[in-house]
Simulated assay, not measured.
Amino acid sequence: MSKTKSKQDKDPSSSSASVTLAELSSLLAEHRNAISADFKSSFEALTTTLDGLNSTVAGHGERIGSLEDNSNEVDRRLQHLENACSTLQQDNVLLKTKLADLEGRSRRQNIRIIGLPESLEGDKPRPVIVRLHRFQVKDLLIREARRRGELFYKEHKIRLYEDYSSDVLKERAEYKSSMAELYKRGYRPALLYPAKLRITLPNGEKTWIRSVLEADKFLQNLNK
Rank of each mutant, 00 (worst) to 15 (best):
Y183R: 11
I111N: 01
E155C: 03
K5S: 10
A84N: 10
R126I: 14
L46N: 03
I199W: 02
V137L: 09
Y183V: 00
T47E: 13
D123C: 05
S166T: 14
T4K: 11
K206T: 07
S18Q: 10
S55G: 07
L53M: 08
K184R: 15
E121V: 04
G65E: 11
I64M: 12
L102P: 03
D216H: 14
K154R: 15
R105Y: 03
R126V: 12
D38N: 01
R172E: 08
R188W: 01
F135A: 09
V168A: 05
T48D: 13
S178R: 02
A29Q: 09
S42P: 01
D75A: 15
N110M: 02
P127S: 10
L222I: 15
S15Y: 05
K217N: 12
I209W: 05
Y183A: 01
V57D: 00
K217I: 05
Y187M: 00
V212W: 00
V128K: 09
R185F: 05
N72Y: 00
S177Q: 13
L160A: 06
Y164F: 14
L140V: 12
S41G: 04
L78A: 11
S71W: 06
S25L: 06
E44C: 07
D216V: 08
G204V: 01
T207L: 06
T200C: 05
Q109T: 03
A215K: 05
N203C: 01
G204A: 03
G122L: 04
A37D: 10
G149A: 10
E205Y: 05
H60Q: 12
S6G: 02
D11E: 12
K7D: 10
T200H: 01
V19P: 00
A100Q: 03
S55M: 02
H156K: 12
R77H: 10
E73L: 13
L27Y: 07
N110R: 04
N33K: 15
I114C: 01
F152Q: 12
E144F: 12
G65Q: 12
T87G: 11
C85V: 14
T49H: 07
Q90V: 12
L222V: 07
D163P: 06
K40A: 10
T47A: 13
P125W: 04
G65H: 04
L46E: 09
S2W: 05
Y164L: 14
A29P: 00
F135W: 15
R210T: 08
I158S: 01
G104R: 08
A180R: 11
G52P: 01
P189A: 00
L116G: 00
L24N: 11
G149K: 08
Q220E: 14
N70I: 04
S16G: 03
A58Y: 02
V74P: 01
G122V: 02
I199E: 02
E68F: 04
R146I: 12
A145G: 15
I129E: 05
T56K: 10
K124A: 11
L50Y: 11
M179V: 07
L140K: 15
A180I: 09
Q8Y: 14
Q136A: 15
K10E: 13
L28T: 06
S15D: 11
N92F: 12
P117C: 06
K98A: 12
N221D: 09
N33Q: 14
A215Y: 03
Q109N: 11
A180Y: 03
P117F: 03
L213P: 00
S25P: 00
L160R: 07
E62L: 13
E73Y: 08
R143I: 14
R159G: 01
S6D: 13
Q8H: 13
L24K: 07
K154G: 05
R63M: 12
S26F: 10
L24E: 08
